[in-house]
Design a protein around this nucleic acid. Structure first.
Lengths: 248, 248
DNA sequence: ACAGATCATTGATCTGGATCATGGAAGATA
DNA sequence: TATCTTCCATGATCCAGATCAATGATCTGT
């Protein structure tokens, strides 16, 4: 079967870059991002404390667990995963992050990051030093509201994931996962039906509390049943209604 | 074997009440609660928007999923559980809440609660209307910081729970759960070794992604191995070091 | 104080998904 | 272009924990 031999990295060009100098106001992520709802003059203030990163190559860490917490990050292009570990080294993928999404929110309450964040492909971020953000927050309540809203949304997502991990079968897990990706992609102006999986099968398996082999098998089954077409990293959802039903 | 025939409800008297009129300043939960770090005059403002509830009896809902989101709640006495459900009615216990802890943070980003909260025993709460809180927040950045810190802490806890649900064995799950309760009780000035389980075995099982029978068996095994003593709702941790090791 | 309902414990059996094993495809490195 | 390594798919086997079943303990309401 023909494979796409040279897959374009996901979201690479979503934020039109000139990496290091694009004001929030001009960024194509604006409507998905933190600044939404801020006044233009506030936006300029915010802009001042943001650092736009250079490119992270695949698998490069954004921060490591237990390192000092200094900044929140917003994905600018590409994608990331976060993981936490047990003492004896078992690892759990706690989330995948796409453009406009925050990374590091779970560290705010303490001195150091509790997860490790790694890029899944060639990616970039906006760095928001937390001290600076708090300073700004004193004069810009709307910024605090935004932050609170975002973190609440992540919390809600994690509660749903608990339901998935605790109560769903392998098939339900995969169906839920694919539809959740689909939703996030379409919110970002991409096709809800056809997209690239920037993460490996084993990242998916780990995130959903499954073995890689199970993920492979279930995806193959979904394909046989005409629910999806999948070749390596490219997936196409053929029957979203049936997938929806399958979610449990 | 002798059972405690009439177990005193957990935490019933922690917040010395006179239910409806105890200023935050005088509340025994002060150091665990939201107001921590606020100036005295701010505290008075905060006090004004807080409603102190009457007693919720066992299994009484604090709010239901899909009802309109209006308020955050802080447990004042007793304890609560929150649950979410799949479309086809399977339920996941997403958290247990003790005095000084927030309920409803995952609803901030939307119009309605996404979970249902029910009391586990005779309990009471402080109700914080979210609109009022936001108004206050505009003049009291410290309040926003507190809120952000609390929600981040819950987020971090949920990430750890994902690790537990996805990667731990039944024994590791129970050991982690018991130690986590122990920690929270001792933070509240109670014994870290001896406490009451206000939730049923089936709530525990559900929360940890196990069957009730498994919870029973593992607890019995822990008892045989001298790690704990347990009679109905009363538990006593006999070997915290070994339990710690068992967490994985 | 009693009856019915719910909750907890323990044993017997079953199963979904893990683990083990293999071979092939696709990136990475040089 | 060859070699190494990681990733993915699929088959065979196994097991931790689910499910089924039965009994006793505890709670609730009257």
């Amino acid at each position: 079967m023909a494979q796409l031999s040279n897959v374009t990295p996901l979201f690479k060009d979503l934020a039109k870059i000139e990496h290091d100098r694009v004001a929030c106001e001009d960024c194509s992520l604006y409507r998905l991002c933190l600044p939404l709802g801020l006044h233009s003059k506030d936006l300029i203030q915010l802009d001042k404390i943001i650092t736009r990163s250079q490119t992270y190559k695949r698998a490069q860490p954004l921060f490591e667990a237990n390192s000092k917490f200094t900044s929140l990050y917003i994905v600018r292009s590409g994608s990331f995963k976060t993981t936490i570990s047990t003492n004896n080294g078992r690892e759990q993928v706690t989330g995948f992050y796409f453009p406009g999404e925050f990374i590091g929110l779970d560290a705010i309450h303490q001195e150091s990051y509790q997860s490790t964040a790694k890029s899944l492909e060639s990616s970039s971020v906006c760095e928001l030093p937390f001290d600076g953000l708090q300073e700004l927050g004193k004069e810009m309540p709307q910024l605090q509201v935004q932050l609170l809203t975002r973190i609440s949304k992540e919390l809600a997502g994690d509660k749903s994931l608990m339901l998935l991990l605790g109560k769903k079968t392998a098939g339900e897990k995969l169906a839920s996962f694919l539809l959740s990706l689909s939703k996030r992609f379409s919110e970002r102006g991409f096709s809800a039906m056809d997209f690239q999986l920037s993460m490996s099968r084993s990242d998916i398996a780990n995130h959903l509390g499954l073995a890689v082999e199970t993920v492979s098998r279930v995806l193959s089954r979904f394909q046989e049943d005409g629910l999806i077409t999948i070749t390596s990293k490219s997936i196409s959802l053929k029957d979203m209604d049936k997938l929806q039903l399958l979610c449990g």
